[in-house]
Computed example of a mutant assay.
Amino acid sequence: MRAALFMPIFDDLADPRVLVQLAVEAEDAGWDGVFLWDHVRLSGPVRAAADPWIALAAIAAATSRILIGPMVTPLARRRPVKVARETASLDVLSGGRLTLGVGTGSDEFGHEYSITGEDVDDRTRAEKLDESLEILEAAWSGDEVRHRGRYFTVDGMRFLPRPAQRPGVPVWVGGYRGKVKPLRRAARYQGYFPIGVDSPDHIAEAAAQLTELRRQAGVGDARFDLVASLPADEDPAAYAAAGATWRFTRFPASVTVDQVRGVLRVGP
């Protein structure tokens, strides 16, 4: 099981320079990855927020080994053509260390969608997510992309340079425990980031479902990652036995720099 820091981007951690320094220290301490939340705002006492993509680019330039990525980015509110350029550039910059976490997002944590005029309908966001992923896969191939969908159009465009990784950037799909559609979506890609999982049994349940779904899709032999997001003081051994390949150490939104540093210095 590999280990990563899963860091929020608010208040004390809203300064990209702080996130970069923590990532450098995490790499030196032996962590395998650093992943960032992707929000434009959050409810409650949170006031300041960093842009995760700018921070990830700076982290990529300052580190050489750890895997990086947003976990998860809500593609439904982003233009897939722009994401295709950003992911390819970030993967090249990092030397092939990017993992793209994706999901539909939710309006409940900060009204990020409703107060900015974005779609709040779950079905619409899911359709936009699937269409965006189709465009990203086509763009990462380096071939000419011709896509005319319900929401997006790309009428004859090539996206070069390609990502450093082949055939493209690994995609991990985020989804709430108990929802089947995110599992089916994840089975077509390279990983699953379950939300609302709080026991090894939940991981074992997801692992069994994904194994069957991937068998049905004919991709059962390909590498697939399953994430357990745990607080720093929880033993990951039972989650690893249940099928998790990554342990993400998660923090509350209001975490301080010293609290993150205290965890990362202990090492994975």
Rank of each mutant, 00 (worst) to 15 (best):
residue 118 E to F: 15
residue 2 R to D: 13
residue 34 V to A: 06
residue 227 V to A: 05
residue 105 G to R: 05
residue 17 R to N: 13
residue 157 M to Q: 14
residue 13 L to F: 03
residue 29 A to G: 05
residue 201 D to H: 08
residue 259 Q to W: 12
residue 7 M to L: 15
residue 246 W to Y: 12
residue 230 L to M: 10
residue 107 D to H: 02
residue 149 G to R: 00
residue 90 L to W: 06
residue 153 T to Y: 00
residue 167 P to L: 11
residue 179 K to I: 08
residue 112 E to R: 01
residue 187 A to N: 03
residue 133 L to T: 04
residue 27 E to T: 06
residue 89 S to H: 10
residue 98 L to P: 01
residue 230 L to P: 02
residue 159 F to I: 07
residue 262 G to W: 12
residue 75 L to T: 12
residue 20 V to I: 08
residue 14 A to R: 01
residue 201 D to M: 07
residue 102 V to H: 03
residue 133 L to S: 05
residue 159 F to V: 07
residue 247 R to W: 10
residue 130 D to F: 11
residue 3 A to W: 06
residue 131 E to P: 07
residue 237 A to M: 01
residue 107 D to V: 06
residue 189 Y to G: 01
residue 54 I to K: 01
residue 19 L to N: 03
residue 93 L to P: 02
residue 162 R to D: 01
residue 217 A to V: 06
residue 225 D to R: 04
residue 110 G to W: 05
residue 49 A to P: 11
residue 12 D to P: 15
residue 77 R to C: 12
residue 40 V to C: 05
residue 109 F to A: 12
residue 135 I to K: 07
residue 245 T to E: 00
residue 235 D to T: 09
residue 136 L to H: 08
residue 96 G to P: 06
residue 153 T to R: 10
residue 194 P to V: 12
residue 114 S to M: 03
residue 156 G to L: 11
residue 63 T to W: 09
residue 38 D to S: 08
residue 4 A to H: 06
residue 30 G to P: 00
residue 246 W to E: 08
residue 223 R to I: 12
residue 151 Y to W: 14
residue 160 L to G: 05
residue 32 D to C: 08
residue 91 D to N: 11
residue 113 Y to P: 02
residue 55 A to M: 11
residue 4 A to W: 04
residue 234 E to L: 15
residue 23 A to S: 15
residue 180 V to W: 11
residue 66 I to G: 00
residue 120 V to L: 09
residue 264 L to N: 01
residue 47 R to L: 13
residue 78 R to T: 03
residue 201 D to A: 14
residue 251 F to C: 12
residue 59 I to A: 08
residue 78 R to N: 05
residue 203 I to G: 01
residue 178 G to R: 01
residue 58 A to M: 13
residue 213 L to P: 01
residue 70 P to L: 13
residue 161 P to G: 09
